[in-house]
């Protein structure tokens, strides 16, 4: 799984940081998404999918094929 991030689209709603705080954080100044690991470990996959589904802006996408 690879997380694709388009920070231009991010509206800083924070759903990602709320859902998987281990991977997602927000910039202190503008609140835009920061990802610590775009190829997250298996244990995070379920929650990453929920985070991507909850993201209101389309800033987060998943490539499932890539390992």
């Amino acid at each position: 799984m690879r997380i694709r991030v388009d920070r231009q689209m991010c509206v800083s709603a924070g759903m990602c940081a709320l859902t998987v705080p281990e991977l997602f954080d927000q910039d202190d100044v503008d609140g835009r998404v920061l990802v610590s690991d775009v190829t997250p470990a298996e244990e995070y996959h379920d929650r990453v999918e929920r985070a991507v589904d909850s993201c209101p802006s389309g800033a987060l996408r998943l490539d499932r094929a890539t390992v």
């Binding site: 509206v11 800083s12 924070g14 940081a17 709320l18 705080p21 954080d25 927000q26 910039d27 202190d28 100044v29 503008d30 609140g31 835009r32």
Partner: peptide, 12 residues
Amino acid sequence: LRRMLTGQFTVK
């Protein structure tokens, strides 16, 4: 305008 405020509303 929204970008000016979003830093105030982060989860942190």
